[in-house]
Design a binder for these strands. Structure first.
Lengths: 227, 227
DNA sequence: GGCTCTATTGAACGCATGTTCAATATACTA
DNA sequence: TAGTATATTGAACATGCGTTCAATAGAGCC
């Protein structure tokens, strides 16, 4: 069950934890048995419990480890100016743990560690977007936090729904971008960029403004004085 | 376990199916036991199997019923011109089955019926958006199908991640909009509208166009001649 | 009333699960 | 080298699961 491992210098509990992360990322937490994790790590089921106490505690350890890894890659990605795609840095790179797939499976079953991670992503997005607005690259908003939250969920949603995304436009958002067939990635990022450039026309925005006069008007004509 | 039911004229298998839909919508399919469904329907576990053969077949029956209901409400919503928010018509209305929550739980576990439903939503979106583009309300696109797919997933993503959405901006996207506390709904729909109005400024779009010269330019200045 | 078919129950079965535990091997310590 | 602590195993346990099945109740038909 294990992949080839020439001179694995990880400690046994680290190997078990990594095996669990792989299993959870593939099948989900609930559908993964302790015995399956044990088999993936080439140990007995009892040893898994011996090291982590229970499946629940092992899951917590996995959550924390994945969160730590993501914070790590996020740090270097921010330094490199990755910015608006929080997934960019955590896509499966060969050899490393499948961070994106793990997130895809665990975003929906209410782990507090994952929730914390999402909150951090939103905070990061708020900062990034504020910078972009000041630089005149992004439109300003009256509800920056809410807008950042929605944009973050719009990046995470297709990750959770990656099966549908792949069926619909043939792009595997969880995978390595290097191994991406020609054009599949741009079939996703292209339209995303297009939509973020503007989906409603000014006509529509005028109509919306008339329908909801309390909301501040924001057509392209107003952008400069608003910014 | 059952809610009050003055003169329930549904057939027994319909009651079981509705109970199952409620359980699946609340706890997810895997975490719901046949015995729990039986208790919710006030029957024995054996009877559930007697009527549906197996839990799997019951799940299929639920998928099909929910899909049929959604197609039904979608039809009337389209007549009323609901348009771009495919969730609008399927939010929990008091008494009816929790369609939105059911979808939220089942969108992630690969049911072919749900996949079919998503495909239909994308098709509907393609049509709607094309109409909007012709009317000058929406910007044109070189990849209308992909754009429609992404927009659909952007509407469904927050549904699947409704727990995070609620924690982040205090809006329950699965619930009845009538019972919505003041402003929570607009904390979601407001920024969504804002983003769809345009997140990148023209400066950014110019920069993107310079970076990817093969992609057609599309700033506000070009909209009219493009349309 | 008797007959037949369906509806319904509750107990039982087999199985997979998470966990426990005694037994054994291994590694460190003095 | 003896002793202790840790690592590891495999069998066992209790529980909950989906499902089966014989038994009973009830409804419709002749």
């Amino acid at each position: 069950m294990r992949s080839i491992e020439p001179s694995d210098d990880r400690t046994t509990s680290a190997r078990i934890r990594d095996a669990a992360i792989r299993c959870f990322a593939t099948d989900g937490v609930a559908a993964t048995s302790v015995r399956a994790i044990a088999a993936e790590a080439d140990v007995s089921a009892g040893l898994v419990i011996h090291h982590f106490g229970s499946k629940d505690q092992l899951r917590v350890a996995c959550d924390e480890h994945v969160a730590a890894l993501i914070r790590e890659v996020k740090g270097s990605a921010m330094a490199a100016g990755a910015g608006l795609d929080p997934l960019a840095s955590m896509r499966s790179f060969s050899g490393g743990p499948p961070l994106a797939r793990y997130l895809a499976k665990t975003l929906v079953d209410g782990s507090p560690h994952v929730a914390e991670l999402v909150d951090e992503m939103v905070n990061d997005a708020v900062g990034y977007i504020a910078t972009g607005v000041e630089a005149g690259l992004l439109t300003p908003s009256d509800h920056p936090r809410e807008r950042a939250a929605i944009l973050t969920l719009w990046m995470l949603g297709p990750l959770v729904l990656h099966e549908h995304l792949e069926r619909l436009i043939g792009f595997d958002i969880t995978g390595d971008l290097a191994g991406d067939p020609e054009g599949a990635g741009s079939a996703y990022f292209g339209p995303v960029t297009e939509i973020l450039g503007g989906f409603f026309t000014d006509t529509t925005k005028e109509l919306i403004h008339e329908a909801f006069p309390d909301a501040p008007k924001q057509t392209t004509a107003d952008k400069e004085e608003l910014a």
